[in-house]
Simulated scan of single mutants.
Amino acid sequence: MTEKTFKTLDDFLGTHFIYTYDNGWEYEWYAKNDHTVDYRIHGGMVAGRWVKDQKANIVMLTEGIYKVAWTEPTGTDVALDFVPNEKKLNGTIFFPKWVQDHPEITVTFQNEHIELMEESREKYDTYPKLVVPEFAKITYVGEAGQNNDDVISEAPYEGMPNDIRNGQYFDADYRRVK
């Protein structure tokens, strides 16, 4: 895990995080650049889902504190407040009713199934939304650099977060060890 002090937006961009919400859900998340995020979900009701090139609003609220928000093709809204110098974040996920009722539809590589996500959003109820506000502890911080397509490049597997934290997943150049 990288030890660094976050001060500017540039310090945040290109950073790879693993965090665990207080409810036990584990996520892996990458600030790919100033408008795009990639992520994998390792625990929780949509564990197994992974996404590349999700458009997001990424801002620095004040020195070392960042807000990231986006809406997925599923209709799920996400708002994350990162406080990486304290190894914590607060996230709120707004799941449409259909995702709560049929989470298995979303447990895939979303980029290859955008049409299915949009069709499901139209076919099933979207309201009431399931609102999940949670604090999380950041358990890994990696300096991947911006626009590194190796960071989130395959489906999540059992033990992947530990492989990453233990230094068995990426090489010194932050490329996937084959």
Rank of each mutant, 00 (worst) to 15 (best):
A144Q: 02
K123Q: 12
P103A: 00
L116Q: 15
N147G: 04
G159F: 00
P96Q: 10
P161F: 03
E122R: 14
F109Y: 14
A144P: 03
E143H: 04
N111V: 10
T108I: 06
V132S: 09
Q100G: 10
E104I: 02
I105A: 07
Q100W: 07
N111R: 12
P156L: 04
Y127R: 03
E134L: 06
D149F: 03
N147I: 05
A136H: 07
T106K: 03
E104D: 11
E115S: 13
T108G: 01
Y157C: 08
L116R: 12
S120K: 08
I152P: 09
E104V: 01
D149S: 15
L116T: 15
V151Y: 00
Q110T: 10
K123V: 06
I138T: 06
L130F: 07
A136R: 05
W98M: 05
K129A: 10
I114G: 08
N148G: 07
I93R: 05
P133D: 09
Q110A: 14
Q100N: 12
D125R: 07
I114C: 11
V99Y: 01
E158P: 03
V151Q: 04
G142F: 00
T106I: 08
D101L: 05
E158A: 13
Y157F: 15
Q146L: 04
Q110I: 14
M160W: 00
D101R: 01
Y124N: 03
P128Q: 07
N147T: 08
I93V: 15
E143G: 11
V107L: 04
V141K: 02
P96N: 12
D101S: 05
H102T: 04
E122P: 06
T139A: 04
E143I: 13
P133N: 10
K123E: 14
N162W: 08
T106V: 13
